[in-house]
């Protein structure tokens, strides 16, 4: 070997041999490693725009999300059309006795026929008026309990957040398109953050917009619910999206893992008494909602000592902190993780 240099040779040998070599060959002059027109922030903002546009590619997901919205609106609309968002059809004793309005009527008749002192009549009338007022305002309470807490927060909110958040990273991994992003001179953590920011408009539009439409279908009760609950919906969407997006970066079958999380942690553990439910996002969402609607008589389903709710501000801080922490963890993981099968 005339010009070969073995890897194991000392630095001095390498230098000497290289000098010998330089006498016989023309030394390479590298083209300068500068690309003056390139701007990292510009590339990053463009990535946000691109990712936002490419989310629309998941047409099936969008269509099914909308179909789910229409189905839910059908359920709410039918209830509204029949005036079921109130306690008017509730019976005492439950299921067998007269309806609440019938009880009031009966009470009114009884009160008017009996001879009583003016004070007693006054108290009776006041009680009746209070009872009627509660009955008139009961629509919001019934809608909150039987739709917002049981269906929207438990099922619709996670499933809508899941659909876009897992798709954001999952579709890139599935289609092996990640290679194009990872070949660009953008820090990996910045790529992760950009894609997260790009999915938020979609998720927020669907969850907050969807919630708005559902509330619209519920009439006055829904209007009040939207006015009180939209901040909780936004906070929950941020937390859910950051969690499911992180799952997309971590797991190959992120949508399935997210679904397991939704049904185990949110549906089962999230509704258990005690502290266990505090690991679920739905719990803090509900706490924000309970606090917002406290003056309308909306309370946790169990006694405070059993449900152990947290204050609205605490819930808000926890949800926002969870979002930031989950995104931060995701950025750190994405920055260090190799996607061997996807590039």
């Amino acid at each position: 070997m005339n010009e070969g240099i073995e890897t194991g040779q000392s630095e001095k040998d390498l230098t000497n041999k290289a000098r010998d070599t330089s006498a016989s060959i023309r030394l390479v002059t590298l083209s300068p490693c500068h690309l003056v027109t390139l701007s990292l922030p510009r590339a990053w903002f463009y990535l946000i725009l691109l990712s936002w546009q490419r989310q629309a590619r998941a047409r099936l997901t969008v269509w099914f999300a909308l179909a789910l919205l229409v189905l839910s609106m059908t359920i709410v609309g039918l209830q509204t059309a029949r005036g079921r968002w109130s306690m008017d059809h509730w019976r005492a004793p439950r299921g067998v006795g007269p309806t609440f309005p019938e009880v009031i009527d009966c009470w009114t008749v009884t009160a008017s026929t009996g001879a009583a002192s003016p004070l007693a009549v006054g108290i009776n009338d006041a009680s009746l008026a209070a009872f009627r007022a509660v009955l008139d305002q009961s629509g919001f309470l019934v809608f909150s309990r039987f739709f917002v807490f049981s269906i929207f927060v438990t099922f619709l909110l996670p499933i809508w957040s899941l659909s876009f958040a897992t798709e954001a990273m999952g579709s890139e991994r599935d289609s092996r398109g990640l290679v194009w992003l990872l070949s660009r001179p953008l820090p990996r953590s910045a790529i992760y953050l950009a894609k997260f920011l790009a999915l938020l408009p979609w998720s927020l539009t669907l969850t907050v917009g969807g919630f708005g439409l559902l509330c619209l279908s519920a009439g006055d009760a829904g209007a009040l619910a939207f006015r009180l609950y939209w901040p909780a919906v936004i906070h929950a969407t941020l937390a859910f999206s950051s969690l499911f997006y992180l799952m997309g970066a971590l797991f190959r079958w992120s949508a399935i893992v997210a679904m397991v999380y939704t049904f185990f942690l949110e549906v089962i553990l999230g509704n258990m008494p005690g502290y266990m439910k505090r690991i679920s996002i739905g719990f803090y969402t509900r706490c924000m909602m309970f606090d917002a609607a406290e003056s309308y008589g909306v309370h946790p389903p169990e006694k405070a000592g059993v449900y152990l709710p947290v204050a609205s501000t605490t819930a808000q801080v926890i949800l926002l902190t969870a979002t930031v922490v989950l995104v931060g963890v995701g950025m750190a993981i994405f920055a260090h993780r190799e996607y061997q099968d996807e590039v």
């Binding site: 070997m1 005339n2 010009e3 070969g4 240099i5 073995e6 890897t7 194991g8 070599t21 016989s24 060959i25 023309r26």
Partner: peptide
């Protein structure tokens, strides 16, 4: 001697 001993070719032939 181990390792991969990357060996430089005769550059004058390549150019």
């Amino acid at each position: 001697r181990g390792g991969d001993r990357a060996v430089a070719p005769d550059r004058s032939q390549f150019t």
